[in-house]
Every structure is written in structure tokens, then in C-alpha cells.
């Protein structure tokens, strides 16, 4: 018995159990997003006024046809949540990737070249961080309107700094490494050095930050759609569902509760995976 207990403790401490849980949550989310047309019992925009405001199936008055109940115009909550995964995940992934691209490039250049490049990038980072992000996002999107690309672009503004900082500090410490100096002495060009030598070294950190950035992006996107800045009018976003559910809080608590749980579980999954990756890839911690 003690051997099992010891193994369990080792696994928990080693992060495997939590990491596995995170992976499971993410897989569920991805599955929901990818297979929405197949998985969801109804279409997210199917209105059925005879079935409006049904409580979840385990409550009195609910039925098994609508497991998590229906909203104010009879749309099935479960289906809308499954479909909503598409928006959250696609925005999260896109914002993380774009942020990674921009942030890592800038961070790499800042760390490697130093001098004015570094000062300029650091200044940009500080300015970015000086803005209360949600307010700035509202500001930008008020001007440029909602929609997938604008929202992803704005969210990337939040995520790029995470990448830039981490990559920059790593590049700074790697810059003086002997093998880099040797490569330069032999005449290897700078772009090649950045690509073949530095990039592989910073890649693990980038992956870790990507996971956390995706989580951050998903949360922020939910907040923005809660405030009314949507991404796609045809597909419900979890945040929009929460906004709607807010008006029916006292009468139909399930409208607001379940989308929120979906958000929390997805973000938790991404965070746990990020933690696990960080243990595996970067044991000294960043």
C-alpha cells in the first residue's frame, strides 16, 4: 500500500496527474470545437419558443432532451456550449501564435543585438504594460469594430509581451555563450545564428509561454464578448452567453452558470498543461 502511495505522491509532485488532467480538459475542448456539428444535439441557433427557459435535466421541469436546459428563446445550452468552444479555442490559439511570432522575434532581436534595439523593445514592452489592457482593448475595438481578425490582433497585443520578455532574457544570457562566438568567428551570418542556434534554445520557453498565453487569451476574449464585443454573430461565444444569462440570473441561473464552467475548465486545462510543460522543459523555472 505504501508503495502505491509513494508512487502517487511522486506523480503528483512530478505534475503528471495534474498535467494529465489538463491534457484531458484540453482534449475535450478541442473535440467539442472540432466535432461540434456531430456532437451537439441541436444547432446553436435553433429557436424553439415552446421549450424556452427549461431548467437542466436533473431539475424539476427539465427533460433529457435538453441536458443543460434552454435559454430565453429555447436554444439548447449544451449545444451552444459545444459550438462556443470553436470561438474560444480558435481565438486563443490564433492570439497565442500571433503573439508568439511577434513577441519572440522582437525578444530575440532585443536580447541578441542589445543596445538600441533592446532599449526600443523594452520601451515598447513597458508602454504596452502601462495600458490597462481591458480598457485599451475596448478603445481599439470601438474604433476598428469586432470580428475575428480585430479581436485576435488586439489579444495578441496582450500576449506578445509575455513572449518578448522571456525570450529576451534568455537571449541575453545566451548571447555571450562560447559556441555562439565561435560560430560568428567562423563567419556564420546573423540570421543563421538566430535561426539555427538561438531559436532551438528558446523554443521550450516559447512553448510554455504559449500555453499560458492561450489561457490568458481565452479568458480575455470571453470578457470582451461579455462586454459586447463579439467575434462571430452566427456562433455563440461563451462570453456572450454569460452576458445574456446575466439578464435572467434570478429566473434561469443555468444560462450563466454552465458557460462559465466551460470557460473555467478550458482555461484550467491550458494552465495545467502549461505548468506541466514548464516542469518538463524548463526545470530551473523562468
Amino acid at each position: 500500500m505504501t508503495r502505491i502511495a509513494k508512487l502517487l505522491r511522486h506523480r503528483i509532485a512530478g505534475g503528471t496527474i495534474l498535467g494529465g488532467l489538463g491534457g484531458l480538459l484540453l482534449v475535450c475542448a478541442v473535440l467539442a470545437a472540432a466535432a461540434a456539428p456531430v456532437l451537439a444535439p441541436y444547432r446553436p441557433t435553433d429557436i424553439d419558443l415552446r421549450q424556452r427557459l427549461l431548467p437542466p435535466s436533473w431539475d424539476a421541469g427539465g427533460n433529457m432532451l435538453h441536458m443543460l436546459g434552454t435559454d430565453n428563446v429555447g436554444r439548447d445550452i449544451l449545444s451552444r456550449i459545444i459550438w462556443g468552444a470553436r470561438i474560444s479555442l480558435s481565438v486563443g490559439l490564433a492570439a497565442s501564435c500571433l503573439g508568439a511570432l511577434v513577441g519572440s522575434t522582437l525578444g530575440l532581436c532585443a536580447g541578441f543585438f542589445g543596445g538600441w534595439t533592446d532599449r526600443a523593445v523594452s520601451w515598447l514592452i513597458d508602454v504596452q504594460l502601462a495600458f490597462p489592457f481591458t480598457l485599451f482593448a475596448i478603445f481599439l475595438l470601438a474604433v476598428f469594430g469586432g470580428g475575428f481578425m480585430p479581436v485576435v490582433a488586439v489579444l495578441s497585443l496582450a500576449t506578445w509581451v509575455n513572449f518578448a520578455r522571456v525570450v529576451r532574457s534568455q537571449a541575453l544570457s545566451l548571447r555571450a555563450q562560447d559556441y555562439l562566438l565561435a560560430a560568428r568567428a567562423v563567419g556564420v551570418g546573423t540570421p543563421r545564428i538566430l535561426r539555427r542556434y538561438l531559436l532551438p534554445a528558446v523554443l521550450p520557453s516559447i512553448v510554455v509561454v504559449a500555453s499560458f498565453s492561450a489561457a490568458q487569451a481565452i479568458l480575455t476574449q470571453a470578457a470582451l464578448s461579455f462586454l459586447g464585443i463579439g467575434v462571430d454573430p452566427t456562433v455563440p461565444s461563451w462570453g456572450t452567453m454569460l452576458d445574456l444569462g446575466r439578464n435572467y440570473l434570478q429566473t434561469a441561473w443555468w444560462m450563466a452558470t454552465f458557460p462559465g464552467i466551460a470557460i473555467a475548465l478550458t482555461v484550467l486545462g491550458a494552465n495545467l498543461v502549461g505548468d506541466w510543460l514548464s516542469l518538463r522543459l524548463d526545470p530551473r523555472g523562468s
Binding site: 470571453a222 470578457a223 462570453g239 454569460l242 444569462g245 450563466a256 462559465g260 470557460i263 473555467a264 494552465n271
Partner: peptide, 9 residues
């Protein structure tokens, strides 16, 4: 992981 607006609600 929990969105603050959901928690508030």
C-alpha cells in the same frame, strides 16, 4: 482559471 465576471455572477 475562473473568469471574474462569472464568479461575480
Amino acid at each position: 482559471a475562473i473568469p471574474s465576471f462569472w464568479l461575480g455572477l
